[in-house]
Design a protein around this nucleic acid. Structure first.
Lengths: 205, 205
DNA sequence: GGCAATTTTTACCATTTGGTAAAGACACGA
DNA sequence: TCGTGTCTTTACCAAATGGTAAAAATTGCC
């Protein structure tokens, strides 16, 4: 067998690794890295603690695996931003995709937020290697749209920040939003409408 | 001596309690509640661990004291929003004050963010008792401005959320912002300019 | 200076937590 | 069905951590 090629994992391996990662996402996103314990993860996964350590080398490796998997999902909506599409529609579509992610993947959003909040100790390399180039590229795309007059001119970097901030806010600050909206079931739709209005008024030339 | 009236703390008490709270703010905002240890706080404060427990009943009480103190500071910029002032100027002033706070009090911002991110386990009562009434009141003020045509109509609740999200983002996601702006020393000013433009275009009738 | 009250240190303790060793149970191809 | 490799459990351990008791030092008031 060639070097570096691992034999494919058994069905049990796949199932249990998936279980563990799902349980860990739950626990890490709720309590943060330090706040999460292997016992909690084990219980949530329905496995014993030593059994978990049979599948992963340790707590840190589980966390790191989650972060690595997350990066791809996280960047995807921005990757999709199409330089050849209609500028305003592209931006609004991006906002919508991010908002949908905040609703559908709140655990992932909070895992990410917690990591950045603490200074990105485990993710800094990813930010530089993956996020930064993509960010720069899409800033250029937006800049070009503005230069050709298809969008009103603003700083593209801060535009992207404001899209991230406003959409992720609904996942990351959910506890606060719930209190203030009194669990309004229309919350998500009204947020979508507001953000569409906001970025339309900002960017319409 | 009347009941419930504690004698005023000595100078040593004042100084050491202040030291401890400052150190704790540092540590809690960096590592979160569970991630912070009394030993770290003690070292940062220049006191021994048992000495710290002479001034506070325990880790939780320190954290709670910080949160209580923070609430006032945190709400202040919104309290200042004046129903009798010029609507657009009032909103822009509020944005500016929040952005200044993100720059000047990043530890406080991250302490708050961490607490909310984990579901506000220790702060939920404060949110309901202090934040909610203020939020509702100021939403009404903004709504009135919009009804009288002084501001373009949008959902006041989401407007406030977007102000919080965009301004606090610069403190809470500082690690990410730094990477992407490559430590641009003009970062804060350009953020201020961007946000002023954004909310002006959104709200100008 | 003397003395009570306050403050600080020393020496601990119990629990929690990430992790390990090794024996036992189980799956599966020959 | 037998045996080998995969998976799981039991029984631990060392370090970290929140917290305590009590002696020692210090402060401030007469």
């Amino acid at each position: 067998m060639p070097d570096g090629v691992e034999k494919k994992p058994s069905r049990i391996q796949q199932r249990n690794r998936r279980r563990i990662l799902d349980a860990a996402l739950d626990v890490f996103s709720k309590h943060g890295y330090r706040g999460a314990t292997l016992d909690q993860i084990a219980e949530a996964a329905g496995l014993s603690k030593p059994n978990i350590l049979y599948y992963f080398d340790g707590k840190e490796e589980i966390h790191l695996t989650l972060l690595n998997q997350l990066m791809e999902t996280w960047l995807d909506p921005l990757v999709t931003l199409d330089p050849k599409g209609d500028p305003l529609e592209e931006i609004l579509g991006y906002v919508q995709r991010k908002l949908d992610m905040a609703r559908d993947l709140p655990r992932e959003s909070r895992l990410f937020a917690g990591e950045i909040l603490q200074g990105a100790p485990r993710m800094a390399p990813h930010l530089v290697a993956d996020l930064q180039p993509l960010f720069d590229e899409k800033c250029s795309v937006i800049k070009a749209w503005m230069d050709q007059g298809a969008l009103a001119a603003v700083d593209p970097r801060h535009l992207i920040f404001s899209i991230w901030a406003t959409t992720q806010h609904y996942a990351d600050f959910d506890a606060q939003v719930r209190v203030l909206l009194r669990d309004d079931p229309q919350g998500h739709e009204s947020a979508g409408q507001y953000l569409r209005t906001m970025f339309t008024r900002l960017l319409t030339p």
